[in-house]
Design a protein around this nucleic acid. Structure first.
Lengths: 200, 200
DNA sequence: GGCTAGGGATGACAAAAGTCACCTGCAACG
DNA sequence: CGTTGCAGGTGACTTTTGTCATCCCTAGCC
């Protein structure tokens, strides 16, 4: 029997995924969580074979979870199930030692398959994504990421400068650099491209 | 027996929802679709009691579906199950005659409940949302919506003007008006606010 | 020490966005 | 017919962005 903890912030989707997995004879869902912190506590308490988790959740993200579990040296393996096929995400996931990465776009039958493969010590990476994982390096440095994040909410350069304790000119320079690196013509476009690739 | 068609663009979530609903003795999922057009065809062919559908899907949206079914005078009732609690969405849904509106954040048990209530001729609107539906009117007119949508992708006023056959000045004016109405200081903020409320 | 490379930061100038007063044309109404 | 009101549209002016050359400081190297 494969023992699972499932983490997913949308309660209804969580319930549905559990229903799907519980249909399988050899799989047992022993815990469910709707945020990263609860999932972490459950994994520590229950020591399951697998953690099936979304990435974007309140509190700790699925990627944070994988990283932490790896650092703690736990035996629980991680399977990411997410909406986002962003290369940056998969890459960070692999670096955090996850064993599987599926998209919610994939057929639901693949879920149980992936669980079994990972429980058996194999991997289960969405093949379409596996290729692209290393195609696009994140070209942004920390400052650039920071100003992009702040400009995302409509802050002006002046406001961003005030927040970071810089001059407005410098902020514009960072945004410009970032836009250049991303092949974007302005900050709006730059934010879009960066988001799309999982670099924010 | 309540006969359902389920539409949801993320295949895995679709599979999971179907698994959840199929657990119920009195509910039968007779069709599933991953886009709006397929869902429409299924409803026409199978004449189910209910259509359970997401809003944001490729092709026709769940709201479009509800509108069409209403116009065709079909007996199939519509239950929306979506991520987004945007007042504008709920409002449009109600105007399109949907019988139920649930959030994916709601507990999964509510899904079967809602299905039964709607099949019995009642309604099932998420109570937290029901209040807010009429709080916020969409203040935008068509032009304003249009320019906001175009500016979303980083187009400049000049580019938007070229697309719409206007002068750049006019475009800036529309953007300005929209920002004013939305209480935003610039176009980026305006787009954010409008999206958040389901007005784009 | 002197030289150099590179990240962090600045200011000057051109282009685009934001702001506002105003000009249509057309439909409603007396 | 006025004329009133109002959505659609424009141009002039100010502020903010985009672009680029340059400076400063620190670290590493001869």
């Amino acid at each position: 029997m494969i023992r699972l903890v499932v983490a997913e912030d949308q309660t209804m989707v969580l319930g549905a995924l559990v229903a799907l997995l519980d249909l399988e004879e050899d799989i047992e869902v022993v815990g469910r969580a709707t945020n990263g912190d609860a999932a972490l506590a459950l994994v520590r308490a229950l020591d399951p074979d697998l953690l099936v988790t979304d990435i974007e959740m309140p509190g700790r993200s699925g990627l944070d979870l994988a990283q932490l579990l790896k650092e703690e040296g736990r035996r629980t393996r991680v399977l990411i199930v997410t909406t986002f096929g962003r290369p940056g995400y998969l890459r960070r996931a692999l670096e955090a030692g996850v064993r599987g990465y599926l998209l919610k776009d994939a057929p639901s039958e693949q879920l149980a398959d992936a669980v079994r493969r990972i429980a058996a010590g194999q991997r289960a990476i969405d093949p379409a994504l596996a290729d692209s994982a290393w195609d696009y390096e994140d070209p942004l440095n920390d400052r650039e990421r920071e100003v992009l994040r702040l400009s995302e909410h409509g802050n002006s350069s002046k406001q961003i400068a005030a927040i970071l304790g810089l001059s407005p000119g410098t902020v514009r320079n960072y945004l410009h650099e970032a836009a250049q690196k991303l092949g974007a013509g302005n900050r709006i476009d730059a934010v879009r491209v960066a988001r799309q690739n999982g670099w924010l």
